[in-house]
C-alpha cells in the first residue's frame, strides 16, 4: 500500500509538470487554433536559462549566495521564454491562425532550429544542475518519506496555477482573453484588440513552459532535446482535458500523470505507455472532445 502511495505521489509531481507544459498548449490551441510544436523548445529555453543562472552565480557571486540562483532562475526562465514566444508569435504563428495542421508543421521547423541553436551554444551532451541546498533531503508526509524537490515542484505548480486562474478570471485582460477564446469576431466587434490579446496570451503560455523547464532541472540533467520527451505527453493531456477550460487541463494532467506512474509501476515503462495510449483512445470514445470543452452550436 505504501509503495502505491509513493507511486501516486510521484505521479502527482509528474502530473504537475505536465500541467505546466499543457497549460500553454491548451490556451494557444483554444485561443488561436494553433498547435505549437515548438513548445517543447520553450521548455528547453527555460531549462538552459536556469543553467546559465547557475553558471553566473558560481563564477561571479559569493558562494554563500549560491542557493539564491534557483529562486531568481524561475522568473528569469519565465521572462526569457516569454520573449522568445513573443518573437515566435510575431514572426511565424500570426500567419497561421486557424490552420492547426499547418501551424504544427511550421512550428516543428522552428523547434528544429531552436534545438540546433542550443546544440551549437551549449554542446550536444546533457548538462547537469546542482539543486539548491534547501531542496535536498526528504520530508515526512503521512508517514512516508518523500523528497523535498517533489513537494517544492507541486507547490510551485499550484502557485503558478493560482496566478494564472486569477489572471484569466479576475483581471480585465484575462476577461478579454476568454472573450476572444469564445468568439473571436464578436470580441473584436466590441472593441477588443485581438492582436494584443493573442500576443500576450501566447507569451504567457510560453513563459509557463519556461518555468516548467526550470523545474525540470531539479529532476535530471538537461539537453537540447529535453522538450521532445514531454511534448507528446503534454499534447495527450490537452486532448483528454479539452480546450478552453482551465479545469479540464488540470484534471487530465493529474489523471495522466498518476496513471502513467502507476501503470509503469505495475507493468514496465513501455507497457505502461501502451496502456495509457489505449486508455486515452478508449476515453475519447466516450468524450470525443475531451473532459471539458466550450459548448458551441456552430458547425463549420
Amino acid at each position: 500500500m505504501e509503495a502505491i502511495l509513493i507511486q501516486a505521489f510521484n505521479g502527482l509531481s509528474l502530473g504537475s509538470i505536465l500541467l505546466l507544459i499543457a497549460l500553454g498548449l491548451a490556451i494557444t490551441f483554444g485561443l488561436m487554433k494553433v498547435i505549437n510544436m515548438a513548445h517543447g523548445e520553450l521548455i528547453m529555453i527555460g531549462a538552459y536559462t536556469t543553467y546559465v543562472m547557475q553558471t553566473i552565480f558560481t563564477q561571479y557571486m559569493p558562494a554563500g549566495l549560491f542557493d539564491l540562483y534557483f529562486i531568481l532562475a524561475i522568473p528569469c526562465a519565465f521572462i526569457v521564454a516569454a520573449l522568445v514566444g513573443m518573437l515566435l508569435e510575431y514572426t511565424v504563428i500570426r500567419h497561421l491562425y486557424g490552420r492547426p495542421l499547418d501551424s504544427l508543421l511550421a512550428t516543428f521547423g522552428v523547434g528544429l532550429i531552436l534545438q540546433q541553436t542550443a546544440r551549437s551554444i551549449f554542446g550536444a551532451p546533457n548538462v547537469g544542475i546542482v539543486s539548491p541546498s534547501f531542496l535536498e533531503g526528504g520530508m515526512n508526509v503521512f508517514g512516508m518519506t518523500v523528497p523535498v524537490t517533489r513537494i517544492f515542484i507541486i507547490g510551485l505548480v499550484v502557485v503558478c496555477l493560482l496566478i494564472l486562474a486569477f489572471y484569466l478570471y479576475k483581471t480585465n485582460s484575462g476577461r478579454r482573453t476568454r472573450a476572444v477564446m469564445q468568439n473571436r469576431e464578436m470580441a473584436s466587434c466590441v472593441g477588443i484588440s485581438t492582436r494584443r490579446v493573442d500576443i500576450t496570451t501566447f507569451a504567457i503560455g510560453a513563459g509557463i513552459a519556461g518555468v516548467a523547464g526550470a523545474i525540470l532541472t531539479l529532476i535530471g540533467p538537461i539537453g537540447p532535446a529535453i522538450g521532445t520527451y514531454y511534448i507528446v505527453d503534454a499534447f495527450m493531456v490537452v486532448v483528454v482535458g479539452g480546450v478552453g477550460m482551465l479545469v479540464g487541463t488540470v484534471v487530465s494532467a493529474f489523471g495522466v500523470g498518476v496513471m502513467n506512474t502507476l501503470f509503469e509501476y505495475w507493468t514496465d515503462a513501455s507497457m505502461g505507455k501502451v496502456l495509457i495510449f489505449v486508455l486515452i483512445v478508449l476515453f475519447l470514445q466516450w468524450r470525443p472532445s475531451g473532459l471539458f470543452s466550450l459548448r458551441t452550436r456552430s458547425l463549420d
Binding site: L96, L105, A106, F108, G109, V110, G111, L112, I113, Q116
Partner: peptide, 9 residues
C-alpha cells in the same frame, strides 16, 4: 527547419 517554415507559410 527553415524549409518547414518557408514552405508552410
Amino acid at each position: 527547419g527553415a524549409v518547414f517554415v518557408i514552405v508552410v507559410i
